[in-house]
C-alpha cells in the first residue's frame, strides 16, 4: 500500500485490509461534494488573511544540548544516533 509506505507506517496484512476498507468507505462518503460546482471557487488555505509576518535577525541562546539529547532515543558524541541508512542517497 503506497500510502502506508509514504507515511512510514508498517502495517500488517489484516491492518492493511481493515484500513483500506475504512478509507474506501470514507472517500466514498466524501464524494458528497461532487454535487457542488467548484470550478470558479478559490481555495481557502488560511482562514484569517495576514501577510508579511517577520522577525528581526537577532540571536537567542541555544537549547541545552545535554537536556535535549537526554530525551533522545539514542545519542553519541553530542549527536543523535540513527540506525544504518539503507536505500537513501547520501
Amino acid at each position: 500500500m503506497k500510502v502506508a509506505r509514504l507515511a512510514r507506517l508498517h502495517l500488517n496484512d489484516s491492518e492493511v485490509d481493515r484500513m483500506t476498507n475504512q478509507l474506501a468507505g470514507m472517500l466514498e462518503h466524501f464524494r458528497d461534494v461532487d454535487a457542488l460546482d467548484l470550478s470558479d471557487v478559490e481555495p481557502l488555505n488560511q482562514p484569517i488573511p495576514l501577510s508579511n509576518v517577520m522577525r528581526d535577525d537577532v540571536e537567542a541562546p541555544s537549547l541545552d544540548r545535554d537536556e535535549v539529547l537526554s530525551s533522545a532515543p539514542a545519542a553519541q558524541d553530542g549527536r543523535f544516533r540513527v540506525p544504518p541508512i539503507v536505500g537513501f542517497e547520501e
Binding site: A60, S62, R65
Partner: peptide, 20 residues
C-alpha cells in the same frame, strides 16, 4: 545571524547541536 525561521545562530563550525 540566525536561522530562516528561528533565533538560534547560523554559524559554521560550532560544536554539534549547540545552535538548536
Amino acid at each position: 545571524k540566525t536561522k530562516l525561521f528561528s533565533a538560534s545562530a547560523n554559524r559554521f563550525g560550532d560544536e554539534p547541536n549547540t545552535n538548536i
